[in-house]
Amino acid sequence: MTHGEGPVVHDPSTLPSDDNVNPYAFCVDLDGQWFLQKGKMIAYYGQIDFHAIGHGPLDHLVAANFHSPLHAAAWVVAQGRGKMLLADRAYDINSYDLEDGNLTIRSGNLLAFQPGLALKQSIIPGFLTLIGTGKFVAASNGAVHFVEPPIRVDPQALVGWADCPSPCHHYDHAYMRGVLGGIRALTGIGGTSGEEHQFEFTGAGQVLLQSTEQLMPAADTGGVPGSAGPGVPGRP
């Protein structure tokens, strides 16, 4: 990034290949297929078709790489050749490479992934697991920070985890003990610290943490003109 100069003008040849354009936008050098969440594509160059999952000529691909009926309506397959830009409400965007690995991520944070990865629903509600080899793109509220277990994480600050550290709940009841704790428990005077409950990770692996405890709010995923959100012409 350069400072003090005018805006950077990109064309298809200067757009980065599978890399960030700036902290908030990612450019996919598409030659084949990518899975992406609806509404996260902001622009593209080239010849790209977007196929809804379940009604396209790509059933074979979907059968091999997409195992989440719960999220099928929110995802599409982009097929073709070109440069495709992804972004999500100016949140920080990062890409990650998995090599024969696994990573579990909050479902709203995942933007797109390469078909080398298989998407599955995690047994933890609200999370998705990616298994295999390939690149994926995820958004977070504030930059992502990698930490190693053992660690306890605020539930809202958790983005995901890789390589299977065992995630579990941790409740801190120490502050309820003693005379003051008893009064607090009975009357509510003194309040809570808001930090009585964390997710605890132990074992080998990586935990992904975002820089704030505010979750990205759920967003509508695309739609036809008329039912789509603001900014789309054709509203009745």
Partner: peptide, 18 residues
């Protein structure tokens, strides 16, 4: 500030300050 902890390592306690 209450609720501002994002993660911690080790034996740390968080007690509301009345």
């Amino acid at each position: 500030q209450r609720g501002a902890m994002l993660a911690y390592r080790g034996a740390v306690t968080f007690t509301p300050s009345i």
